[in-house]
Design a protein around this nucleic acid. Structure first.
Lengths: 209, 209, 209, 209
DNA sequence: AATGAATGAGTTTTCATTCAT
DNA sequence: GATGAATGAAAACTCATTCAT
C-alpha cells in the first residue's frame, strides 16, 4: 500500500523518504516555533534535522514544502489520535470523549496549532487549499458525531445549526492554544478542558428542554 | 495634549508624523493583507504610502515598526468605535449592543484582524507585549460590562467565570474573521452575528434560572 | 530625446543608467572573453565594473540582461561606425569601402563577435529574437548597397542573389574572427582584408561580363 | 586494433565503454541542442542515456568529458562520411562531390555543428586544442584535393591561395548551419547547396582564364 | 524634510562529484 | 559494474538600511 507523496522528492526509496521527512519535520517544528517560518533558514532546518543542505533538497523542492509537510503532519497526527475514539454511534458519551480528546490534543500540540495558523499564509495557493480542506475535515468529523446524536435521539438541534456547533467545538478548543498566555493565569489545562467540555455540552443539549 | 509616540522618528513636527504614519499604515495594511509582512518590502510600503524609501525611514526606525503601528492602529480603531456605546451601566441591553458592535467591527476589519494574528510573531518582544496588553484590554472591557451586569442583578454568573465568558465573547467574534472562508458558505455576516449574539446571551443568562 | 531602455532598471536617473551600464558592459566583455558567460559570476561583473553586487542589480533584473546589453552594445557600435560611410549612392567604391570597414570592425572587435555568437544561446527567446533582428539589419545594410549598385548600373546581378551575396559579405568578414587562430598563421589582418575584399568584388562583378 | 581512449574510464571492458559512450553521446547531443551544455545537468545526461549518475561517472571523469566526446564524435562522423568519396585523384568532379557531400553533412548535422561551435569554449585547453586540430584536418582535406587538382592541371590557382580557398569552402558550408534561421526563408537546403557549390567552383576556376 | 542610489550580508537553490552498498 | 543517496561549495538574487545631496 504505497503512500502517495504530496511533495516531490528526487529520492526513490519511499521508506527513506519517510524517515528523512520525519527528521525534517521534527527539526522544522522546533525552529518554526522559536523564530517562525520566515526567520528560519533552510540551512538551519537541514542542520537541525541532522543532514546537509544538499540532502534537504533531495527530499523537498522548495522551502515552502517543509511548511506544508509540517501542516500535513499535524493534521495526520490529530486524525490518527481522534480516529481511535470515534465510531459515530451517536451517544453524548462519544461526543464528550471526542471533544475532550480534541482539546487534549490542542493542549499537547499547542505550539504546532499556533504555528500552523500563523504561517499557513506562506503556503502556495494549492497547498493552502489542501490545508483548509483538512481543517474542514476536522469540522466534518464533529458534524458527523452531532448528526449521529441527532439520529439516535440523544440530541435535538436543528440541522442548520450543526455546522456552526461543530465550528464552535473546534474554535473553543483552539482558543486554549491561542490564548494560553492569558488563560493559563487563571486555569490549568485540565480545568479549562473540564469547564469547556461541560459548558459546550450544556449549550448544545440545552435546546433539548 | 501631545501624543506620546511609541515609535521613534527623526522628524520633529508631530502633526506631520501623524499624517505620514496614517499614509504608511494605510498602504502597509493593504500590502500586508495581500502578501503578508515578510513578503512585503519597505520599498513597496513607501511607494504605496506615496513617498520615498528615504522618507519612510524618517518616520520609523525599522521595518518592524510599521507592523507595530499597524497593530496599534487596529486596536485604536476598535477601542474608539466601541467606547461610544459603553457606559458600564450594567444592562443586558448594553452587553448585547457591545457584543454586536464588536462582531460588526470584526466583520468590517476581518483582514486586519487576521493580519494581526498572523504577523504579530514578527514583532519584537516588547512590541508583542504591548499588543497583548491591548488584547487584554479588550477582554477587560467585556469583563467590566459583565461585572456591571452582575452588580446590577441582570446577570447571575460566578465571578470566576467572568474572564472566560469575556474570552468567549471575543473569540466567537474573531471566529468570523478566521473562518469566514468556511462559514460564509452557510451564513451571511448578519445572520452569523444574530445567531452568535443570541446564543451567547442565552448561554450566559442560562445560569440565571 | 529620451532613449528607450530595453532593460528595466530601478534607478531613475537615465544618464546615470547609461554611465553605469557602460561600466558594466566594459567589465562584462572583458570577463566573458576570458571565461565565457556561464563561468563568469555576477559578483565578478560587479567588481570589475567597480561597484557592489547590490548596485549591479539596480541596473539590471537578471544576469542575462548583462549579456543582452553586451550584444546590443556591439551592434550599436558597428552600426554607428558603418553609418558614417554609407549613403547608398550606388557606386562600387562605396560598396568596397563598406565591406572594408566592416571587415576592419570585425578585426577590431574580434572577441566581441565570437563572444556574441557563442553565448547568444543563453539569451531568452525574446532577447535572442532582438539580436537576430539586429543581425538581419546588418545583412539588409549590405543588401541596400548592392541594390543601389544594381540600380545605378554599376552591378548586374539578379535580384534573387542579392540576399545571399549580402550574407557572403558578412560571413566572410566574421570568418576572420572565428578562424583567426588558423588564418593568422598565414595572413596578417590587412592582407586578409585586402584579399577578401578584392575576391568578393571580383566574384560579385564577374557576372557583369 | 584496440582504440586508444581519449577519455579515461574506470571500466575495463572496451566494448562496453564504446557502447555506453554511444548512449551517452546520443543523449547528450539531444540535450545540448535543446538547452546548451551549461544548462544540461549530468543527471539529465545519465537519465537520457538510460543509466544512473553513478554509471555515467564510471565512463567519464568530469562533465566536460561528455562535451569532448560529443565534439569528437561529430568529427569522426564527418570524416567517416567524407572519406568514402575522396581519393585525391585531382579532378574537378571529385572536388565538386566532396564539397557537395560536406554541405549535405552540414545540413544533416546542423544542430551538431552549431552546438560544437557554441560550446567548445567550455572545453579545457587541451581538449580545445584537440578539437581545433580536428577542424584543421577538415581544412587540410580540402587543401589536399585542391592541391591534387592543381597538380593534375585541372585548376590553376596560386599555392598561397589554397588554404584560404579551403577555409572558404568550409565556412560557406557551415554558413547554412549558422544562418539557416535567415537563409531558409529564401532557399531550400538543396537550392542553397546547388548555388553555393556552383558559385564556389566558378570562383575557384575563374582564375584559370 | 525629502530623495533615491549604494551597499553587502544573507537567503534559497543547484548540481558536479563521491562512495558505500 | 551499477546504483543513487549524500555532500557542500558556489551561484543568483533580494532587500533593509544608510547617507550624501
Amino acid at each position: 500500500m504505497a503512500k502517495k507523496q504530496k511533495v516531490a522528492s528526487s529520492v526513490k526509496d519511499e521508506s527513506l523518504i519517510e524517515k528523512r521527512r520525519k527528521q525534517m519535520i521534527q527539526g522544522a517544528v522546533k525552529l518554526f516555533k522559536e523564530k517562525g517560518f520566515h526567520r528560519t533558514t533552510t540551512r538551519e532546518i537541514a542542520k537541525e534535522a541532522g543532514f546537509s543542505i544538499g540532502t534537504l533538497y533531495e527530499y523537498i523542492r522548495a522551502k515552502e514544502d517543509v511548511l506544508f509537510l509540517v501542516c500535513d503532519g499535524i493534521y495526520e497526527e490529530v486524525q490518527k489520535q481522534l480516529s481511535t475514539f470515534i465510531v459515530e454511534e451517536g451517544t453524548l458519551e462519544e461526543l464528550s470523549i471526542a471533544i475532550r480528546r480534541y482539546y487534549e490534543l490542542v493542549h499537547e500540540m499547542s505550539d504546532e496549532f499556533v504555528l500552523m495558523y500563523q504561517e499557513s499564509k506562506a503556503l502556495s495557493k494549492d497547498a493552502l487549499q489542501y490545508v483548509l480542506k483538512k481543517e474542514l475535515e476536522m469540522v466534518s468529523l464533529f458534524e458527523r458525531i452531532l448528526n449521529a446524536c441527532v439520529k439516535s435521539g440523544e440530541l435535538r438541534i436543528e440541522e442548520k445549526e450543526i455546522p456552526l456547533a461543530a465550528h464552535h467545538i473546534i474554535v473553543q478548543g483552539q482558543m486554549w492554544a491561542f490564548r494560553r498566555w492569558a488563560l493559563a493565569k487563571q486555569y490549568s489545562s485540565d480545568e479549562y478542558i473540564n469547564i469547556q467540555v461541560e459548558q459546550l455540552l450544556k449549550g448544545i443539549t440545552r435546546e433539548n428542554a
